[in-house]
Computed example of a mutant assay.
Amino acid sequence: MEIKRLTMHVVEMPLKAPFYTHLETVTRREAILIEVEDTSGRVGWGEASAFSTPWYTEETVATEWHTIKDILFPLVKKYPIHHPSDVSTLFKAVRGNQMAKAGVESALWDLYAKRMEQPLFEVLGGTRASISVGAVASGQTTDEMLERIQSHVENGYGRIKIKISRGHDFKVLEAIRQAYPHISLMADANSAYTIEDITHLKALDAYKLMMIEQPFEAEDMWDHRKLQGEIETAVCLDESIRSLHDTRCAVEMKACQVINLKYSRVGGITEAKRIHDYCRMKRIDLWAGGMIEFGISRAHNAALASLPGFTMPGDIVSTDYYWEEDFIEPGIFVQNGRIHLSKKPGIGFEVNRERIERKRKAVHSA
């Protein structure tokens, strides 16, 4: 692929409703949209998905801007790129900064699929033309969460996730199970607990959850192993998994039974595919997590989730779930709990440049 121009657009939009965790309440979303143009005029799109503040990982939109502008773009311009996986090797010279890397690499995957004149999910080896999806029911009160669960159930989402923390778990779960005794329910802690809470967490077994996601800090893999040995509920790791190496460590030490795979968190689609292949070989349940992302990233995520090793519904919601308008057209929509993948080349959607310009805060080309 002969690259003619690399461009990044910092965009920002308000969410239709706040997204609550015990760490942060997100009301507006910034992201960096990556545009890669080759010498034939084809354009690939990616999205760097860090948040404005470092509550989820240490990366932010500001650090992504620096890393992409001053380090990653120059590397892509300097060295020949024959296949998107080439940049995974090229970027090894840069420590961390996984979401910045994923943004650039995903744009190259879209461009590559368009050059092949194939939909991205087929280029990646996907075996499903539609995928099963779930949704998050976040809220400040139990009533608000129950209202969102009802909406998700009516829209056919195959799995419901709620956010929990110390002091905001048992009462909420009790109310949900009384109202919805049979829905597929999981709980995401976003590192709200510590190893001292094992006895407390064992009581969650009574609610027959699909899993508890990331109960401890990202670095506490050994403590997750201790917890998984004490509870019946499956432990799912999210923030702890940043690479295939992390995945192998978690599986071999039996720190989890489920992995939430976000290609943006592990540095790109190439590494995500490696993790997928490993989990499939080891029969570890896998699902595609979401990042309150715009449509470009969501389209990449949906393509990845078509691979056969994704065994559980992912966090890939409709375009109109978070936004009054998105940057892709016609948009991604859930129908009876499933998303049908586009058969058009690349991510399969047109990007609305006029909308990007209206919502853009900064732009840089190389």
Rank of each mutant, 00 (worst) to 15 (best):
D326R: 05
A62D: 14
E154P: 07
E59V: 10
I296Y: 00
K254S: 14
P54S: 04
L146K: 08
L227V: 04
Q140E: 13
E350W: 03
E117Q: 12
I3A: 07
I183A: 12
L244Y: 02
R28K: 13
I160G: 06
R128E: 10
R355F: 10
V133Q: 00
T270H: 06
M312C: 07
M145W: 04
H276Q: 12
Q257T: 04
S365N: 10
E357R: 12
M281Q: 15
I259T: 05
I81P: 09
N301Y: 01
N97V: 13
E47C: 10
S165Y: 07
I81H: 11
K92N: 13
I316V: 11
L15N: 08
R242V: 11
D205F: 02
A192S: 14
E35C: 04
P308S: 10
V351L: 12
K163W: 06
K77R: 14
K343I: 05
I183C: 05
I231G: 09
P84E: 02
M99A: 14
T7F: 00
A175I: 07
L204A: 03
W323A: 13
A129N: 13
V351I: 15
T247L: 06
N97L: 12
K101G: 11
S85P: 02
L307R: 02
Y112W: 12
L6I: 15
V43Q: 03
S132I: 00
N352H: 07
M8I: 15
I339E: 01
H9R: 10
K361M: 14
E37V: 09
E144T: 10
W109P: 01
S240P: 05
K78D: 11
E325I: 04
D169R: 03
I131C: 11
